[in-house]
Design a protein around this nucleic acid. Structure first.
Ligand SMILES: [Zn+2]
Ligand SMILES: [Zn+2]
Length: 816
DNA sequence: AGCACGCCGACT
DNA sequence: GTCGGCGTGCTC
């Protein structure tokens, strides 16, 4: 009998596998791997969708059910993708169908919809004998023969999660059928504007008044934006809507400007002149690519060394061979200008993927790639799954960016997926950066992957003058403001001379660390060497990796002075101070995260470039994308929050940021100046960033990683526990730990493993749920993943903890 | 997760 | 006697 293995949509990790189905003779031709199917599943034979993973011949047995329908004419997934599915499941602890969803553009997957109709023989009279609630639910079906679940419940005036319909089905009054429906609807954003006319009298709470003013200024804005600018929660806006002060509505996200920009069919291959250094790197990489085996290299090139030219030359060659290319870039640098470089050269062969695409646009691009019309894919994280058939080269630009790993399940790492694809296609994987992540540089140093270096800045662009501002000194001189004297002076000069400046605030830090005002010593955990966090509740300093804690005192353990202070909260409100200190400056508040629509963001940047603002104040992420002729002063208001964040990567991240800032100041005609403000100027990271010396930073950081057993010398696995009852969540984490210990000392004895005690997550409560976490220093091997997988499956089956969910995340960006 | 099967209390 | 409570176990 002809059988298929199917990844079924309605599974959960703890019982997910490929399920066998028999193929009825009528579908024998159509049932091909890579096609979606409709199958009965579970005791109730609920109809759901699945994906055929493989076809085989086998004996049937009583348990086997039959495929109901094949939903695609031709397979949507290639062989490579079909291999990738179980690989994703094994590495990232997701279900097979979760993996399928990653590979298909949203909008292509169907949603199964429940359609209700009156059962045969049920009449008006039967309905009228029913109790009121049931009657209400059945009445609309006397007028319309069938209705979708949501619509029916709405018409009946019942809540969307009402169970009445199921009851009616059981009583034989209603009949339910499942229908596959295309997930429709484009990416849209919730918008809000003031209601016309406004209610009279207009009564507003202080928070509402803030929202009101923002809306008066802006006319309309996305709910997210309003929340961001005013700091209120969406509930406030909802409340105002309920009182008729404003209206909420959906708006389709703006079509991205650079996708509609015209470009020639084939593009123009203007010749590129490489410097000797670039030429060498290019030749080496080309040779590695030509060798015909999968290869993995790092292109380490200082800021402004012209990595893009090397990319373009390589891409030219790969395309000439008839093979395809993926270029991954961080969201922030996927600007119209950067995309234009590629569109100009490769014309319509370029497909662009990023998070701002509407469902329809994403689908169009996906189809163009699938049909082979686009062979160069430029995009963010999800571009790694582009359905290219003959990959020759994958480039990961700014490879240290943490956005290459997904922060929602499946928590895949795009760089790992890239390596999977390069192995499959015997292609070249090229990671590139001016500040590679320590793990990557280590792999290059130890010869695990190739290394090419570009050490010269292109043209005559010169490094800016860097001023490291000692904020302790400022305090002693009576300056308690957010701007040090040198920075303030520079900003005023710039205003005077009509030049522009950029200031970076820290993203609101979550931790309040303790430092000595006399010697600058920062309190760290003796076990983990990360900064300790001050907890007001018990007046202690705590380590959120291992739970170590000490009482907070005023005495510094280093210099025994009495001025140990905790900082963090209270250093906000920097923006207000800025406006006071520079009353005449036209300040542009900018944020690169999802709070602002892409359109608004590009628009604002253009206004800045046109000189409509004097100063950008942004969070740190903004730093990367900015490149303006007229900007000659760049300042980081406080590098300390980032530097002493309680995370083992905090030094690396801060070095990355500061290096970018310094590397970008003054790229135009005038020499730039960079100001780095800190309470601990003696920290070597500042001098290293000022001189753009990544190798020296690496030499300093690596021994610390080794000593403390952090990547690249160990992998860090976080097991998270979430639930609404704190006791249960805590208990769950303890039981999980016990079972882990048991397995680790018996069956998995050979695994290197160090377990840190379970502890409350950094933000214990989020969204009404309590969260705990367990940290494991391990080696991310197949065997280790098998152990974790078994534990997760077993935990999901524990009746005692059925309200607690556990998940695992390997080397996450932040440790909860 | 969802859903059926199954075994006990309070209703006609 | 039975309707319906939710404990238990399975998903090709
Ligand atoms: Zn001290
Ligand atoms: Zn610790």
């Amino acid at each position: 009998m002809l059988m298929v293995r199917v990844a079924v949509e309605n599974t959960v990790y703890h019982f997910d596998k490929d399920f066998d189905y028999a193929v009825p003779a009528s579908l024998a031709e159509k049932a091909v791997p890579g096609c979606r199917v409709q199958v009965p599943f579970g005791t109730a034979n609920r109809v759901c969708q699945g994906m055929i993973l493989s076809v085989h011949e086998a004996e049937g047995n009583a348990k086997i059910k039959f495929l109901q329908a094949v939903l695609d004419e031709a397979p949507l997934l290639s062989n490579e993708m079909l291999f990738l599915i179980p690989w994703l499941k094994e590495r990232y602890y997701c279900t097979l169908f979760d993996a399928v969803r990653l590979l298909l553009p949203a909008g292509l997957t169907y949603r199964m919809q429940s359609i209700y109709a009156l059962a045969v023989g049920v009449t008006k009279e039967t309905v009228q004998t029913l109790p009121p609630e049931k009657q209400a639910a059945a009445l609309p079906l006397l007028r319309q023969s069938s209705l979708e679940k949501g619509k029916l419940l709405r018409q009946a005036g019942l809540s969307p999660d009402s169970l009445v319909l199921d009851d009616l089905c059981r009583n034989g009054i209603l009949q339910r059928t499942m229908d596959p429906v295309r997930r429709m609807g484009d990416a849209s954003m919730k918008m809000v504007r003031l209601h016309e006319p406004l209610p009279d009298p207009l009564k507003l709470t202080p928070r509402q008044r803030e929202v009101f003013h923002v809306l008066q200024d802006a006319g309309c804005a996305s709910v997210k934006e309003v929340c961001y600018f005013t700091g209120v929660t969406p509930a406030v806006i909802k409340n105002m809507t309920a009182h008729g002060v404003c209206d909420e509505y959906e708006q389709e996200t703006y079509r991205t400007p650079y996708l509609t920009g015209e470009c020639t069919e084939t593009g123009e291959q203007t010749p590129i002149h490489l410097s000797p250094e670039q030429e060498t790197a290019y030749e080496h990489l080309l040779a590695a690519y030509r060798a015909g085996e999968a290869t993995y290299s790092l292109l380490y090139g200082v800021t402004g060394s012209g990595k893009t030219s090397v990319y373009l030359c390589l891409i030219d060659q790969v395309l000439q061979d008839g093979r395809d290319v993926i270029l991954m870039v961080p969201e922030i640098s996927l600007t119209p200008q950067s995309v234009h470089i590629f569109q100009q050269r490769y014309g319509k062969k370029v497909a662009v993927f990023h998070s701002g695409l509407s469902v329809g646009e994403r689908m169009d691009e996906w189809k163009r790639v699938k049909r082979g019309e686009a062979t160069v894919v430029v995009g963010t994280r999800s571009a790694i799954f582009a359905p290219l058939a003959h990959i020759g080269l994958i480039i990961v630009d700014e490879e240290q960016e943490s956005t290459y790993q997904s922060e929602s399940s499946p928590r895949y790492h795009a760089k790992e997926v890239a390596w999977f694809r390069c192995r499959y296609h015997r292609a070249l994987l090229l990671l590139a950066s001016a500040t590679p992540c320590v793990e990557t540089y280590y792999a290059a140093q130890t010869g695990k992957i190739g290394l090419e270096t570009l050490s010269q800045r292109y043209g005559e662009a010169q490094l800016p003058e860097v001023c490291i501002c000692d904020m302790n000194e400022e305090l002693r001189n009576g300056n308690a403001s957010v701007l040090s004297w040198p920075l303030l002076t520079a900003l005023r000069e710039n205003l005077e001379q009509k030049r522009q400046s950029i200031l970076l605030l820290n993203r609101r830090g979550y931790n309040t660390f303790a430092s000595c005002q006399d010697c600058g010593h920062v309190m760290t955990c003796p076990n983990c060497s990360i900064s300790l966090t001050y907890h007001a509740a018990n007046n202690r300093l705590m380590c959120h990796y291992c739970g170590y804690s000490v009482p907070m005192t005023a005495e510094c353990p280093e210099c025994h002075g009495k001025h140990l202070r905790y900082t963090g909260a209270g250093t906000q409100k920097a923006e207000e101070q800025l406006q006071e200190l520079l009353p005449r400056a036209r300040i542009l508040r900018l944020d690169a995260d999802a709070t602002m629509s892409r359109y608004a963001y590009e628009d604002k940047l253009r206004q800045f470039a046109d000189g409509e603002y004097d100063l950008i104040v942004g969070t740190q992420m903004v730093a990367k994308g900015l490149d303006f002729e007229n900007v000659t002063v760049v300042g980081v208001l406080s590098a300390d929050q980032s530097l002493y964040n309680d995370d083992f990567r905090s030094t690396e991240r801060t070095f990355d940021l500061l290096t970018q800032v310094v590397g970008r100041a003054g790229r135009g005609r005038f020499r730039g100046r960079a100001f780095l403000q800190t309470f601990t100027p003696e920290n070597p990271v500042f001098a290293l960033a000022a001189s753009q010396n990544y190798p020296a930073f690496y030499q300093q950081e690596l021994p610390l990683r080794k000593l403390m057993l952090y990547p690249p010398f160990a992998d860090l696995c976080v097991v998270g526990f979430v639930g609404s009852n704190e006791q249960e969540v805590r208990g769950g984490s303890m039981v999980f730990l016990q079972q882990l210990r048991q397995l680790a000392k018996t069956e998995y004895r050979q695994l290197p493993l160090r377990v840190l005690n379970p502890s409350p997550a950094h933000i214990l409560r989020a969204g009404g749920k309590y969260r705990y976490k367990l940290l494991l220093k391990c080696r991310n091997s197949r065997l280790f993943r098998q152990m974790i997988s078994r534990l997760l499956v077993h935990f999901a089956g524990e009746k005692k903890f059925k309200h607690v969910t556990a998940f695992a995340d390997m080397n996450p960006d932040t440790v909860l």
